[in-house]
């Protein structure tokens, strides 16, 4: 958690290897993405799924392709190209979409969906990717409370299987309900690190109110 500009998105971008750290080292699932190249880096990245804050979906594509993009790490270029003509593995994509309640929109153009629906498409992509580590940047910002709970539960599934979910959230209640550990950031530094069970919603509201 942390105020806007505290470094939450940067932390997640460093963790998925899109941004190299300016100092120090980074270990993701036991490996350092800055030292890996080519296929080895791709294999590590395939084990990390990210729900980006601005979703980063291709609006011109149908929903099914944006969900299928979660499998691009294992698809050959030819298969990826053919899938744009004849969608591959539609059943799995529909199953993933069904879990976020969007199975009926599988062939709609993504930019015709609302903000909240697109957020769920991004979640479906991660579900299909099946990563060990899930990085989620404000995954519930455009969702109503019920859907927000549902989406965080889905994103937490890899964690239940021994992986992890790292989410940046602005809603303290959501954080307390779904997370084991709460880390507070301010100006790029850790200013709070405690098990969720030891914190109350009031503590977190205070944290927001008094930026360090």
């Amino acid at each position: 958690m942390g105020a806007s500009g505290a470094g939450k998105s940067t932390l997640l971008a460093v963790a998925n290897g899109s941004v190299p750290p300016t100092a120090g080292t980074v270990a993701v699932l036991g490996e350092d993405p800055t030292t890996l190249r080519g296929p080895a880096l791709r294999r590590l990245r395939a084990r990390v799924g990210t729900v980006h804050q601005h979703l980063e979906l291709a609006g011109q594509l149908r929903v099914v392709h944006n969900v299928n993009a979660g499998r691009l790490a294992s698809w050959s270029a030819a298969r990826a190209a053919w899938s744009l003509v004849r969608p591959q593995g539609v059943d799995d994509a529909v199953a993933a979409l069904d879990r976020v309640g969007l199975a009926d929109r599988v062939y709609d153009r993504t930019d015709r969906l609302s903000g909240g629906q697109r957020q769920r498409v991004a979640v479906a992509r991660v579900l299909l990717q099946g990563p060990e580590l899930v990085l989620a940047d404000e995954p519930a910002s455009a969702l109503d409370p019920v859907l927000a709970d549902r989406v965080l539960a889905l994103l937490g599934e890899p964690a239940a299987r021994g992986g992890a979910l790292v989410a940046s959230l602005h809603d303290p209640l959501l954080a307390l309900r779904h997370c084991d550990r709460v880390v507070g950031l301010a100006a790029g530094r850790v200013v709070l690190d405690a098990p969720a069970t030891t914190l109350s919603a009031a503590d977190l509201t205070d944290f927001y109110g008094t930026p360090a």
């Binding site: 998925n16 290897g17 899109s18 880096l41 791709r42 294999r43 590590l44 990245r45 395939a46 084990r47 990390v48 799924g49 990210t50 980006h52 980063e56 979906l57 291709a58 609006g59 011109q60 594509l61 392709h65 944006n66 993009a69 979660g70 691009l72 790490a73 698809w75 050959s76 270029a77 990826a80 190209a81 744009l84 990717q129 990563p131």
Partner: peptide, 22 residues
Amino acid sequence: PRAALRALGARPAGAWLFGVLP
């Protein structure tokens, strides 16, 4: 979109097909 696909381990061709081409 292309950067996001690279981040999940897509090959350059796949990221281009799904991220830039559309």
